[in-house]
Computed example of a mutant assay.
Amino acid sequence: MRDNLPERMEHGGRVRWHNTRVRGKLLDFSANINPYPPEIPWTPDPATLKDYPDDQYETLKEVIGRRFRRDAAEIAVGNGSVELIRAFCSAVLGADDAACIKPPTFAEYEMAVRLAGARCTTEERGVAVRFLCNPNNPTGRLYTRPEVLQVLEENAKQGSYLFLDEAFIELADPRQSLAEISHENLFVLRSLTKSFAVPGIRFGYAFGTPELIEKIETVRLPWTVNAFAEAFAIEAFRHYERLEESRERIARERDWLSGRLRDLGLSYEPPSANYILLEVPTDAEVLVRRLLERGILVRDCRSFGLPRHIRVAVRTREENRQLIEALEACLS
């Protein structure tokens, strides 16, 4: 029996759990979900549940491939992006390997590396994989396409993979994406559920060379994308261009929210997507509790190693007003 398993990582979006423990309905600013998702003309068909999904997901991959000009053999799909992070690490890392992870960033990278038996480091040299989240979660830093290409070149020179997590790039600036590039040292991760505001269906997808994707398919559990998730994803990719309107509306609301936060005297990282990392004048735990008492759930960033920071999602104008009012009351 293994007794050296890492501790489970903490995530946002636990609004259902909190709703069972507080009075009234909470506003969830802890999960970075598109507040202006495209309307998708899709209704669940119970008849699809009588059969197993096609574990090759050929139709789904063909739809994704047409959208991103990639061959179906270069596409992996999974039960959320986390499954693909773990499948990738299981496929390419071993006990003698190291992976470069520079905090603060998404905690599941470290979890997946350690579960694969490898170790984590902040050094860029002598590693098997370098993880890069673009835009970064939780800071919101967005690397330009030339910057990411430079990182890819550096990794390629030492024969290591660049694991590029673009889970939020569709809500930031997709012009900086490398999703259409096929390179033997590159693996690009995406998340449909954040962009289309359907985290409950759990769907992630990724791009790599056919050889890398075959390894990932070998370690991936079968049938992890259920029939409803597959059907919704196919329809969503057919309306993918509608995300442009979402980005425009998020950018306007992000600017408004940033201005109000600045008026409160709060410092924040320059945001690029649908969330903002805030430095707060008290312990994050204290402020999170105070906000929760006012019906506002935010992301406590202590798990990112940031004890005096919270992360807030960008939501609709009226919801953002309520956040500002709650922050003003809690900080006064």
Score class of each variant (00 low, 15 high):
P46C: 02
C89D: 02
Y36I: 09
S81D: 07
I75L: 09
D54K: 03
R86V: 13
D96P: 00
P46H: 03
L93V: 07
K25Q: 08
P103E: 09
L60P: 01
A76N: 03
E83S: 14
E39S: 08
K50P: 04
F29P: 06
I64A: 09
D28N: 12
G65E: 07
A72R: 14
I40Q: 04
E39G: 06
A107Y: 04
E110T: 11
I85L: 15
N32A: 15
R114D: 02
V92R: 00
A87T: 13
I40E: 01
Y57W: 09
D54M: 06
A31S: 08
T43C: 06
I40W: 02
P46W: 04
F68K: 00
E108T: 12
D71M: 10
Q56W: 14
A91Q: 09
S30I: 08
P35F: 13
K50W: 15
W42C: 01
V63G: 01
T48W: 07
E62F: 14
R66I: 11
Y57H: 10
C100V: 01
E62A: 14
T59N: 12
I75S: 08
P104N: 06
Y109T: 03
T59G: 10
A112E: 00
A95H: 03
A87H: 06
S90G: 13
P46G: 03
L27H: 05
E108H: 13
D28L: 12
I75R: 05
D71I: 09
K25A: 11
G65H: 07
F88S: 04
D55F: 13
D55Y: 12
F106K: 05
P44N: 00
L27T: 06
A72N: 12
C100I: 00
R67P: 04
G78E: 05
T43G: 02
N79V: 10
E74V: 08
Y109I: 03
A31D: 06
R67V: 12
A73E: 12
N79L: 13
G65Y: 09
Y36F: 15
Q56A: 15
P44D: 01
L27P: 03
A95E: 06
I85M: 14
P38L: 04
N32H: 15
A98H: 07
D45R: 01
D45V: 05
A112W: 00
P46T: 02
A31N: 06
N34Y: 10
C100M: 03
G94S: 04
I64R: 03
E110H: 06
R114H: 02
P103K: 06
F88M: 07
A31R: 09
G78H: 05
M111Y: 14
W42Q: 01
D54N: 07
F68T: 02
G94E: 02
E74S: 13
G24Q: 01
L27R: 04
C100E: 01
A107I: 08
A98F: 11
A31V: 11
D51A: 15
T48G: 03
D71H: 14
A73C: 08
W42M: 02
K50V: 15
Y109R: 00
L84M: 08
A47R: 11
A98M: 07
A47N: 11
F29W: 10
V77I: 04
G65R: 05
P35D: 11
I101D: 01
R114K: 05
P38R: 02
D71F: 11
Y109S: 04
D97W: 00
